[in-house]
Design a binder for these strands. Structure first.
Lengths: 220, 220
DNA sequence: ATTGACAGATTGTCTGACAATCTTGGAAAA
DNA sequence: TTTTCCAAGATTGTCAGACAATCTGTCAAT
């Protein structure tokens, strides 16, 4: 069969277009935490029907980027310091789970995927567009979970990545320390690829809890 | 101020009604894994509009109970043995995370909530309706995550609980060993309440990975 | 100060329609 | 015979407009 290693050529549905547009607005700071959104305004501005907006908002709500109160309205999530630390602990747990699966693979193929994702990330981490940088970051971690071969990790990924997006949205605005970002991720990848479980565990802790507490400290 | 310790009186939206109805059908086996669903049929049978059905289906899809392929259709998820084991490992990680938070609470109030949830569960675990038993089971574990005080655990809870629902749906049909269920959960609760970290860790492993491998063995 | 009624705004739901896409079967071409 | 193409039917994706349900705020009445 020809064309067996091509990516599926899917175009986005309109709902997904709305989703990425709102996500972009949150990441870039065009929509600030706590800001209220109304379906009618969004439908008008994005030039889609109210129905389509509703479906997009429902999705973003389930991903944790928006908060919805029935009959009252929807607003951009504004995570507390505690929420950010909680998220870090959750990510630490899940990354450790992924690590166990990765190191269990006898072929080493899984680790090769991690190395490939790291190369892709390095090309994008200094992009001019902050949205591109953010997406590259998310995609990098997603690739690790994907390489772990755990189907359930991929199920919870949208939620965790959504929470990461809101938590980091402020970070994107106020922090500019790309070198530190790079170095943390480099240690992270090298520790995983080394196969040294203890070293990887420490790197994961640094990368999740360490970064989060620094972020919280910076905000407080 | 009067009425300060009343529960909020919320009635379900129609979409949520559809969600619980489909969920019930899956749990009771009225909808079998792999079965295809069409929006129009559901709308007719449930006597709601297609829109409302769509919103419910989107939610159930993100919870992992349904699988959706664009323009093709939606069918009930049918997890593989590997999926079930994956889910067990994920639950083990998350329960351990919750445990850490629970034991960190100096007031002991969190553990009191766990004990209360256990009492509620004991009243319902032998109910005639299998749906009630299933919901009691889910609610019990949800209560533990709630008691842990982790907001992010509550965010991922719907997904994990959805995956548990499909995984256990078959179990509900073919397995009838309520005593073993009770004993496992009893050990689980007692270990947590004892404050003994090592003992709780072992109980959590038994409860998640142990049960799952037994289930997989029974299916295979 | 509390209650009740009214108006405005927004979300929740319905109906009907059309566009986009998948599937299937058979006709046409090689 | 096998492959390719096309038309028909089914289902999902999206749209428009409308009405019902619910929240908020204001203002009069008690």
């Amino acid at each position: 069969m020809a064309g067996e290693n091509l990516s599926p050529a899917r175009s986005m549905s309109r709902k997904d277009g709305v989703v990425v547009e709102i996500r972009r607005a949150i990441v870039t700071g065009a929509l600030l935490p706590g800001q209220k959104l109304t379906e009618l305004d969004l439908a008008k501005n994005l030039e889609v029907s109210r129905q389509t907006v509703r479906e997009a908002l429902a999705q973003l709500t389930r991903e944790g980027l928006l908060v919805q109160e029935p009959y009252k309205g929807i607003h951009v999530a504004s995570p507390s310091a505690q929420d950010i630390m909680d998220l870090a602990l959750l990510r630490e747990s899940l990354d450790l789970l992924a690590l166990d699966q990765l190191l269990k693979d006898p072929t080493g193929e899984a680790l090769q995927h991690v190395a490939a994702a790291w190369e892709t990330f390095k090309h994008l981490e200094n992009d001019d567009d902050p949205l591109v940088r953010h997406q590259a970051h998310i995609a990098f971690h997603h690739a690790i979970w994907l390489a772990s071969g755990s189907s359930t990790l991929l199920h919870v990924a949208p939620v965790v990545e959504g929470l990461m997006t809101v938590a980091l949205a402020r970070d994107l605005q106020l922090r500019q320390d790309p070198q530190r970002e790079h170095s943390i991720h480099e240690k992270y990848v090298e520790a995983i690829l080394s196969g040294d479980h203890a070293r990887a565990t420490a790197a994961i802790h640094d990368h999740t809890v360490g970064s989060a507490s620094e972020l919280v400290h910076m905000l407080g």
